[in-house]
């Protein structure tokens, strides 16, 4: 897999339009310049595999909600982490649930990180900053 990290997108898999908007805003407020692509359900997320095969830019990180229409977030995670090529893409589960069962299942399937999405927007901004920090592959304006 040979791709330029600098301009590669972040793939956000999220069904709630408010959450999509807020997440994009949160990343923007921490000056990330990576384009953010959005998949609104699990099925759409899995369609990206075909796109990557056809030469689309591979995301630097996938932010994945668990409760998704059509195909469940954990199934998306499983499919990607079992893919021979794309299993190396970092996946961060970003979800409201703090249930132990969800956390365990996600880590069992090989998620790189599990972050509970805070209700408080101030905290949400902090989390967005942490994601950027943690996956320092992401590009940021000076």
């Amino acid at each position: 897999m040979n791709y330029q990290l600098k301009n590669n997108p972040i793939l956000l898999v999220e069904d709630n339009p408010l959450d999509v908007d807020l997440t994009i805003r949160a990343f923007k407020s921490s000056n990330l310049i990576n384009p953010i692509e959005v998949a609104r359900d699990g099925e759409e997320a899995l369609k990206y595999i075909k796109k990557w095969d056809d030469g689309a830019a591979i995301p630097v990180v996938i932010l994945l909600d668990l409760k998704l229409p059509k195909v469940d977030g954990l199934d998306v995670l499983k499919t990607l982490k079992e893919h021979t090529i794309y299993k190396t893409i970092p996946i961060v589960v970003l979800t409201s649930s703090s249930e132990n069962s969800d956390i365990k299942a996600a880590y069992k399937l090989g998620v790189n990180s599990y972050i509970v999405k805070p209700v408080n927007f101030d905290n949400f901004l902090k989390v967005a900053g942490q994601i950027e920090l943690y996956w320092n592959v992401l590009n940021k304006l000076p």
């Binding site: 807020l22 409760k67 805070p118 209700v119 927007f121 949400f124």
Partner: peptide, 14 residues
Amino acid sequence: SHDLKAPLRGIDGY
């Protein structure tokens, strides 16, 4: 866990 929190986050965020 999932659904109740999302609108709250929206209210707070906006």
